[in-house]
């Protein structure tokens, strides 16, 4: 069994199947791109994988363990982190506070130790502050550390979303359109960082509309259309398949 595996996953809203009978396996350390036209079920797929929704049928396995049906926090604790399609932030928090709160899973000390401020907790806290600041430096958010997160520009809020997801120290990172609304340079900056993150051993699943980003990053691509997986394989090959071009790219070729 592979690292992360979806078997016959279906999610229905009423009688509409957002995704239907999806079989997908993700290998450790790869960057898997998921593409498809609007409404093809890409985000639903991520939402089902992180238990934002429960699948109507089918199951998801992570490292051989069934994770479909678990609570979102349990899934996060197993090492699967995600970003959201829109800029979801902690209201009223600064950049540093948002990421510190999100580093919840990195603590080994318990709540009582943190309440009593034992030495173990304070040491750990300092270590985590250091890690969080490194993360902010990497994602170029360091200058905004003490600014309210809601005051950041769109591009930086996207980066903050990635920082929040990374703060939990995940093994798998699910990115839901990380480059929406970004110009080319910003998008390339994101690409560079996703590559860096991937090189540290994090498996990345990437939903993306920007073909340049996708072809740069993905080692493998799965294509969805109307909730059904229509193709899977190497990016260049998949993009040249007839059904993909018809479904996703119209009649034009890349």
């Amino acid at each position: 069994m592979s690292f992360l595996e979806l078997t016959n996953v279906t999610k229905q809203f009423g009688r509409l199947s957002a995704i239907e009978d999806i079989n997908l396996s993700v290998n450790q350390g790869e960057v898997l791109g998921i593409v498809g036209p609007n409404g093809s079920g890409k985000s639903t797929l991520i939402n089902v994988m992180t238990s934002y929704y429960r699948p109507t049928s089918g199951s998801i396995y992570f490292k051989g363990r069934k994770i479909s049906g678990l609570r979102p926090d349990k899934i996060a604790a197993l090492g699967i982190a995600r970003t959201f399609q829109s800029n979801i932030l902690f209201e009223g928090a600064t950049v540093l506070e948002s990421v510190m709160v999100s580093a919840y899973l990195q603590y080994k000390t318990n709540n009582l130790q943190s309440f009593l401020r034992t030495k173990a907790y304070r040491d750990e806290y300092e270590k985590i502050v250091g890690k969080v600041l490194d993360l902010l430096k990497m994602l170029e958010l360091f200058n905004d550390t003490f600014l309210p997160a809601s005051g950041l520009s769109h591009g930086y809020q996207r980066m903050l979303g990635i920082a929040i997801a990374l703060a939990s120290g995940p093994k798998v990172l699910l990115l839901d359109e990380p480059t929406t609304g970004m110009n080319h340079e910003e998008a390339m900056f994101v690409v560079e960082n996703i590559r860096k993150i991937n090189e540290t051993g994090v498996t990345v699943i990437l939903i993306e509309h920007n073909m340049k980003v996708l072809l740069d990053l993905a080692t493998r691509v799965a294509v969805l259309n109307f909730g059904i997986k229509i193709a899977e394989g190497k990016p260049k090959e998949v993009m040249n398949k007839r059904e993909v071009i018809e479904a996703y790219l119209g009649t034009e070729t890349i």
């Binding site: 992180t50 926090d73 996060a76 995600r82 902690f90 928090a93 506070e97 919840y104 899973l105």
Partner: peptide
Amino acid sequence: QINRSRLGGTFFSLAANQILAEHQGI
């Protein structure tokens, strides 16, 4: 003491954005 410990931040995160907090493992 609760407020300045990790509990304070965790409580805050639940009110600030419940869904995001849950997906961070809280």
